[in-house]
């Protein structure tokens, strides 16, 4: 198996002639945290949507564990072990915290089409669900509907739900956006913890989080890769400073 868990070759996405993503060769090394940064409209989320097949690619290929997944369907991507989160926190709002996680856990039981079976057959999953809830610090909200949680807790729940699938690779779309200071610290600690056994690719705006967490950084502007490397190298690159960090990070 190669060092790279995820690789793209010439990844391109055009919307009616406009190239939102152009010729992107991305390589994500196994077991690392890889950040995808860039100014607004650089195509970061589009890249995510292409990788997880939520958008069809116009040209180029995607390899996951050396396997060409360019033609896969989004649900298949998750089954291969690559699970994404969303920019706007994605929970099942009228499910309780535990039900949110249970729905992720129940797929492997293979009974998800069994409409004749009682819901009680899922209670065996509660122990595992409660472990995950504890890991993200939501124990006291176990039976609260997700819609009633504060924003930061919704994000924590989303990560717990993602972890419930025990993915080999996580794609996190702006995991700390919209969070307060304390929540950011909590979520970054959680990401760090999770990364011990997994590969993470994340889109992130908060550069201190990026600096603290990531092993490798890819900078995207106007749909193509400007540069990639370690944070210290990238942050000194004059092109990057001009394109992205110029104002806020001088």
């Amino acid at each position: 198996m190669s060092d790279f868990i995820l690789r793209t070759e010439g990844l391109t996405k055009e919307f009616r002639g406009f190239a939102a993503v152009r010729d992107v060769d991305l390589q994500v090394r196994r077991g690392t945290i890889h950040a995808l940064i860039g100014p607004n409209g650089a195509g970061k989320t589009t890249v995510f949507n292409l990788l997880t097949k939520f958008l069809p690619v116009t040209a180029g290929r995607i390899f996951y564990n050396d396997r060409d997944i360019t033609g896969d369907r989004p649900a298949d991507i998750a089954r291969r072990g690559m699970v994404r989160s969303f920019q706007i926190s994605a929970v099942f709002p009228h499910f309780t915290v535990r039900e949110n996680i249970r729905v992720a856990l129940q797929r492997v039981l293979g009974t998800s089409f069994h409409f004749w079976r009682s819901e009680r057959s899922l209670e065996g999953l509660h122990a595992r669900a409660d472990e995950l809830i504890e890991a993200v610090g939501l124990t006291e909200f176990t039976n609260v509907a997700a819609v009633e949680l504060a924003y930061g807790r919704k994000r924590a729940l989303e990560i717990a739900t993602t972890l419930a699938l025990d993915p080999e690779m996580l794609l996190l779309d702006e995991p700390t956006s919209g969070l307060g200071h304390e929540d950011i610290a909590r979520i970054s600690a959680l990401i760090k913890e999770v990364s011990k056994t997994r590969t993470i690719l994340m889109v992130e705006h908060n550069l201190s989080v990026v600096a603290e967490l990531s092993d490798t950084i890819t900078v995207l502007t106007r749909g193509h890769i400007l540069t990639q490397g370690r944070y210290e190298e990238v942050s000194k690159n004059p092109e990057v400073i001009e394109a992205y960090m110029g104002t806020g990070h001088g």
Binding site: F92, E99, S112, F115
Partner: peptide, 16 residues
């Protein structure tokens, strides 16, 4: 049922 759970999850948030 387990099926109903997934069905409701789809209604709640299909992309997820």
């Amino acid at each position: 049922s387990p099926f109903g759970q997934v069905l409701k999850a789809i209604r709640e948030n299909e992309p997820r």
